[in-house]
Simulated assay, not measured.
Amino acid sequence: MTDHTEAPATGYAARVIVANRDLERSAASGVYALGMAHSYHHRQLRSHGGPDSPDNLVLLTGTGTTGEHGAVHGDPRMAQRVGLIVPSWATPAEYPIYRRDPYGLGWDWFLQTPDGQLEWAGGDGRATMARLHGIDDTDIDAALALFREMVSLARRSPWD
């Protein structure tokens, strides 16, 4: 893992970094998010003390009740198992997320760094999630299937 000792950006600066990192597209579906209702989802929820920083934010379509963002809050078990929700006891920068590579290489496990970069986690991300949650590959596969269903819906129709 890269050394990220500089204090992370917060607030508006963090959102600019996230929009640039994600190329203004949803981290889940790859849909151009800034052209529709969108929001910056806090992976570690604000109600659980989650910071407003690049490692904790992802750009999603919809609001906390609509679109992808609504789907994440509607299925917290799935969201936690794919890294879209980070438990209060974890550190967002060290908690893998299954997300779209902004440069179009598909979906995989990544770590989001405090300075707004993505580090590929590959199979280690999947293994880390299984270990953190005390689950096996079948449970990860089930969560990924639900995630892919959410992505499929987002790519078919625009969210309000």
Results as ranks from 00 to 15, higher is better:
R148Y: 10
Q112A: 10
Y95S: 02
D108P: 00
H133E: 15
G50S: 04
P158T: 11
S152C: 10
G125V: 04
T5C: 00
G74C: 11
W107D: 08
W89N: 10
G134Q: 03
D160G: 13
F110Y: 10
S152D: 13
L153F: 10
T2G: 05
D3M: 04
P92E: 05
L105P: 00
M36K: 05
G11K: 13
A154Y: 03
S26N: 10
A28Q: 07
R21F: 15
S152V: 00
G30L: 07
M36A: 12
A127T: 04
L57R: 08
T61F: 11
W120H: 09
S39V: 01
Q44A: 07
D3V: 07
Y40M: 09
A9G: 00
E119S: 06
G123C: 05
E24I: 01
G74W: 10
A142I: 02
G83E: 12
E94F: 05
D108L: 08
A9R: 13
T65F: 13
P51S: 08
L84H: 12
R77M: 05
Q117Y: 06
H4W: 08
A127M: 03
Y40V: 04
T10A: 09
L45V: 04
Y12W: 09
A71P: 00
P8A: 04
M1D: 01
E6Q: 06
R156H: 14
R81W: 02
A127N: 05
A142F: 01
I85Q: 03
Y12V: 01
T61I: 14
P92W: 08
A19C: 07
A145I: 05
W159E: 15
Q80F: 01
E119G: 02
N20F: 13
W107H: 12
Y95F: 15
H48Y: 14
M150E: 03
L84N: 07
R131H: 11
S53N: 01
T61M: 15
D108C: 09
G116F: 09
I135E: 09
M129I: 15
M129C: 03
I97E: 02
T2K: 07
A7Y: 06
R155S: 11
N56L: 13
N56F: 15
P114Y: 11
I17D: 00
P96T: 13
W159S: 15
Y32K: 14
M78T: 07
Y32A: 14
P158K: 12
L60Q: 12
Y40A: 02
V151R: 11
W120C: 04
L132F: 01
D22M: 10
